[in-house]
Nucleic acid binder design. Structure first.
Lengths: 142, 142, 142, 142
DNA sequence: TTTT
DNA sequence: TTTT
C-alpha cells in the first residue's frame, strides 16, 4: 500500500557531523539538530523546550555534510523517520529513532555577507547549497 | 530562533487508539501507524520494510481519534516529533520518540461503498473527516 | 541561495490524465485535482469551497499517470509550484500556475478489496502505488 | 472528503509587504517571494530559474508581516494554494494563484550579526519569530 | 549540544 | 471537473 513518511526540519546543528566510512565503502554522516517550541506554563510563564533530532546522511549527502555543515549552522532537512533496534550491553533491545536525510539546504548563508558566521560555506557555488540524495541509493537498506 | 519540526505521514493504523483520561481532565489517545518502503537488496530481490510510528493525539483530537479511528484505517497525520525520557524498571534512562498529531484526516473512506471496512465513519459529517488541534492547546507542555 | 518550493496535495482527480508526446520524445501528462475546504459564513452556515489544481507529470511519471490514474481517484501528489507565461490570442501575457509532480501515490486502493471502485489499480504491484520522478530529469527545463 | 492542500516555501521577499485594511476592519498583507531552481540545459550549462510566489497573509499574520517582514528577508512560509478569479478591464475572466499563509518564520536572522541586513527584527522577542494564523479565522472566505 |  |  502506498504510504508517506516525510519529515521537514529547520534548526541548528548541535555539533559538527561525525563521518564514518563503513566496510564496503559506504559513507554515513551523523549529526544532531535542535528545534525549539515555546509555550506558556500554568503560571503563564513563557517556557522554551528544545527537541534534539538525530540526523543520518548517507553516501553523497554524507560527503556534502562533512564538507559544508558545522556546529551552529542553520539548515533545512527533509527526510524520513527510521527507528532502529539494537541490543544494549545488557542484551536488552533498545530503540533509537533518527531522520534519514533526503535533502539538506543551508539557510541564512549569503555568500559575500554571511562570511563571518559561516566561513566554510562562503565558497560554495550557489547551486550547491541544496543537496539531494539520489532516490535509488536512498532506498538501500542502511 | 525560528525553527520547524513537521511530520507528514500517510499509513494505516496498527490498532485501535488507546484513550486515557489524565488527572486534570486531559484526554490523550495513542495509536501506532505503519508506513512502508520498498527497496532492492544486493541480490536484486524486492524487500518491504515497515516503519511503525507512535502517534499521540491530545484533547479534542484525542476524542475525535477515539470516535472515528480504528485499526486498519488509512489516515493522514500531520504533527511534530517529540522524544520523551523516562526511567525504566532498572532506573535507566530510556527514550521514546512519538509524533504529536496536529491534524488527522481520514483517507479512502467512501460512505456507501467502503462501509464494510470503515463502518464507524459512515456517519461522520463531511467536514469532520479532517480534524485539527487548536494551536494554543497544542502548545501546552504535555 | 538555497530555497524550498514544495507542495503536498491529497485530493481526487477531476478527469482522466491527458497525455501528450512532445517532439523529442518527452511525455507529459496533465490532470486536475480537487481539494476542499469548509468554513462557516457570516450567517453560520457551513460552506464548501473547492480548489482545482493543475498537475503536470513528466516523463516516467507521465507514463505511470497514464497507466494508473483516472477520474475520481484519490491521490497524494508531492511537487513544486511553477507559473508559466504565455501569449493569448490577443497577444496579451497570461499566467497559469501548475504543480509539477515529483511523487504520486495512489490512496484508498486495497488490492483485493477496493477492486470495485478502482479496477485498474487492482493489478498494480504494491510497490508501484508510489511513483517518484528521478530528480535529474526533473530538473530539466520543461 | 478529507483533502490536503499544503505549501512549504523557503525564499526571500521580493519587496516589502503591501498592507491593506479592508472595509470591515480585516487586514491583509501581500508580498512576493522568490525560490530558485538550478538545472543544466542541453549544452550542459548551468541555468538558474526563479519562481515568484504571491503570498497573502490575513488578520493577525498580516499585522505581523507588516511589522517584521521586509524586502530581501529569508522566510519560511507554510500555507495553502488558492486561485482567485477576477474580471479584467476587457471583462475577460482571469486567474491569479496565490499562497494563503498559515505560518511564517523568519530565517537567518541573527540579532547582533545580521543587523545590517535585518535591522527591524533585532527587537523581536524570540518566540515571535514564528507566527501562526489561528485556524478558525483562517477558514473564513477571504 | 544549537539558535534567539 | 473530484470526493463526501
Amino acid at each position: 500500500m502506498a504510504s508517506v513518511n516525510k519529515v521537514i526540519l529547520i534548526g541548528h546543528l548541535g555539533k559538527d557531523p561525525e563521518v564514518r566510512h563503513l566496510e564496503g565503502g559506504t559513507t554515513v554522516a551523523n549529526f544532531t539538530m535542535a528545534t525549539n517550541e515555546y509555550y506558556k506554563d500554568k503560571q503563564g510563564t513563557r517556557v522554551e523546550r528544545t527537541e534534539w533530532h538525530n540526523i543520518a546522511a548517507w553516501r553523497g549527502l554524507a560527503e556534502l555534510a562533512e564538507k559544508y555543515l558545522h556546529k551552529g549552522q542553520q539548515v533545512y532537512v527533509e527526510g524520513r523517520i527510521r527507528t532502529r533496534q539494537y541490543q544494549d550491553k545488557d542484551n536488552q533491545t533498545r530503540y533509537v529513532t533518527e531522520i534519514v536525510a533526503e535533502e539538506i539546504s543551508l539557510l541564512g548563508s549569503r555568500p559575500g555577507t554571511g562570511a563571518a558566521t559561516q566561513p566554510t560555506t562562503a565558497a560554495v557555488a550557489e547551486e550547491q547549497v541544496t543537496f539531494r540524495q539520489e532516490p535509488e541509493l536512498d532506498q538501500l537498506p542502511f
